[in-house]
Each structure stands twice: as structure tokens, then as C-alpha cells.
Design a protein around this nucleic acid. Sequence first.
DNA 1: TCTGGGGTCCTAGGACCC
DNA 2: TCTGGGGTCCTAGGACCC
Length: 417
Amino acid sequence: MIALVDCNNFYASCERVFQPKLENKPIVVLSNNDGCVIARSNEAKALGIKMGAPAFKMKPIFDYHNVHVFSSNFALYGDLSNRVMQILSQESPAIEIYSIDEAFLDLKGVKKLNKFSIDLRKKVGQWTGIPVSIGIAPTKTLAKVANRMAKKYKKDGVFLMKEPATITRILKHVAVDELWGVGRKYSKFLSQRGFQTAYDLVNASESWIRNNMTVNGLRMIKELKGIPCLALEYETQRKKNICTSRSFGMDVKTLQELEEAIASYASTCAMKLRKEKSLTSSILVFVKTNPFKELNSQHSPCQKVVLDVPTNDSMEITSQALSVLKRIYKDGFNYKKAGVIVGDIVSEESRQLSLFHTQDIFKTKNIMNAMDDINRKMGRDKVRLAVQGFDRKWRLKQEKLSPCYTTRFDDVLEVKI
DNA sequence: TCTGGGGTCCTAGGACCC
DNA sequence: TCTGGGGTCCTAGGACCC
């Protein structure tokens, strides 16, 4: 049996851990740049605030109902996530960390599934303050369904779905668009063809599913039938692409400001590569104007450069990215977003050198290590490339940022006795 | 005024090879 | 007049996930 442990309204719950007075109050967390709603407490959901809704359109509702609004604080969420995952790893035989707020547990050998889950949930709650729900079933896709049921209907936050008769009964009440693997397009496509519930889908012809929903769709319905097609992945895979991109807090017009931004994103990509012990062989740079301003002239170029020798050196990746930027930049547009994507990633051990490459790759490695060490201790970007800029007017809007309670000494809560 | 960021996988079609 | 069969690799686009 497989359990899916999912943190309830994760980002909103993280904010609440350090502000318990917000218990039972509506909370939303906004995306970068304070753009969209990306997390809602149950109370905020009940007010009809939709996932992904633009914050500026919701403002009247926020004000009227006294909704507590937060900018996203990923340092906080990442740290609390690690704490939750650590507990899960200690308590269960094997675990796949699936996302920042979800993990699959392999429950092989666990005798009392229900009791195990209820205890686990209690422990996570007590040690971190984060409420979780647990769904248990024979396959990952069914565990997802079970988790949904736990969240929706179970006070104790745990739902076990084992017997075929139980599974069938439940699937008759699950709409197709609630399934893991059915997004907007498939949802529309399926409902047009008369599929309402997961149970309808289980009874569809497998060859029809294969033809219309690719092999992924076929795996999904097999999993709904209780046949495991998706194995748990215990080891984190090396990323194949790494992207750093942001929208700007204001319109950006000049090449110099774009250069600061692209240099910063390129350095961040390089840092992420070093963290994974990876190297990149291709660097893609893109800039975009604001597609929502339809009356403005639009320009969204992107271009990729392929390297002779893979690298994770900030200076090299940044200078390559900047030369791409110079090629694609055009004067006279209001740019709203930019980013860098590094791809064709290989591991540090498997670097293929070039016959004609003369640069001493080991020399810069020491500089990068020193830079990473300092920044780890003293805070992000404490040491950085000058080309990343100093006043950085283009930076994100984050007007409602909560303190980094668990990752910055200055922000640690004080208790007065 | 204000609309996120970061990923994966699959498929069809084109270019190329022998 | 007649024009095969079997591959690989790459890319763009589309679907999905959190």
C-alpha cells in the first residue's frame, strides 16, 4: 500500500505557524511580484477566492472580508517543508518527496495502516505546526484520490481505500477533472464525450484511451484499476533543465537594466547547478513584454547558445547569457519579464573536455566554491558579480513579506517571560 | 497601476543516414 | 514508365504536475 501525505493549504499554513492568532481567519499567499493568489486557507476558499486569481482584482474582497495577505516567502516554506519531510523519512520505511508539500510513502510491512497514519499526522502537527492529510491505497493515482477524500470528508485527516468494492464506490463519486493526470484540456475533451466520473473512465476501452490520451492516460486508468504503473522514486533525479525567471516590479526599457536582471538570473542558475553537482551545455535567454497590455507593441524573443565544454561557472554562464541578450534586445519596448534556462545538463563527473579548450576549469572552481561558502554563511548574493547591479530597480514587488522565522537570525521570534 | 515560477513527458514531423 | 524499406535524431508544440 502507498500513502500520499499532503500538507493542507501549505503556504497559508506556514504563515499561520508563526501567527497563531490567524487560526480560523482567511489567509492568502501571493505569487512573486504579489501577482496572483497561489495559496488559500480554507476560510479564504470559502469566500470564493480562486486559485491563480490576480491579486489586484481580488483587492475589494480582501479588504471587505479582512483577508490576511502575504507575499510568498519561499525561504520559510522550504525550511518547514524540510522539517516535515524529515519526520516522514524517520517514520516510514521508504519515501518519495514528490513536491514541496507532498510525499508518497511505501507502507510495505506496516501492520495497522490507519493507526500508523493517525499517529504520523499527529506527530507532524505537533512537531512542525503543519496540518497534513493522508490517503492510503494500492497505487499512487488511487492514493491521490484517497487523499482528496481525507481532506474533504475526514475529521481525522486519514482515508484508507483498500477493498475493490470501496474503491469502486468512491470512484463513482470522483469527477474526471479531479484525477491526477487530467488537466483542463482532457477534462473538456472527456466531458464532451460523456465521461463524468473516474468510474466511467475505468470502464472505457483501453485502446481508445491510449489513442486519445497517450500512454500517460493508459497508465492512469490502469492505476485506477489498482494495477501499479508508477513506481515510487526514492532518489532525486538530476534536473534536465534549470530555469530562473522573474517578472519585474516595473516596466524595464533599457539594455542596462535587462543586463542586470539576466546576469542575476544566470548566476542563480549557475549556483543551482553547483548545488546539484551538475554542468550545463546550453544557455537560453528570453525577455518578454507584458502580454496583458494588448495595446502595447509586443516583443518576446529568445535564443540559445550551445557551449563547447559544459560548465557551472557563474562568470562564464553569465557572460554567455549577456552576449545572447545583446543579440536579441531591441530598443523601444516595455519589458516585463526575463529569464535564463540552462539545459543539456550532465553530472560534474562526466565533463567532456574539448580538444581546443584552453581555460583552466579547476581554477575558477575554487573561486566558485569560495563564493558559495561565503554566501551560505552571510546570506544570498553577499558576494556577487558587479554586472548584477546595485540598486536593482527592476526587482520584485514583495510588499507583504513575513519574516524568515526559521532561516535568519534577525528574524527569530523573541519570547519575553 | 497591478496577471507567478519551475518542472516533466509524449508525439508528430522533418531532416538525415544506409 | 517505373521511384523501397528501415532506421535515428532533433525540435516544436501540447499535455500535465506542483
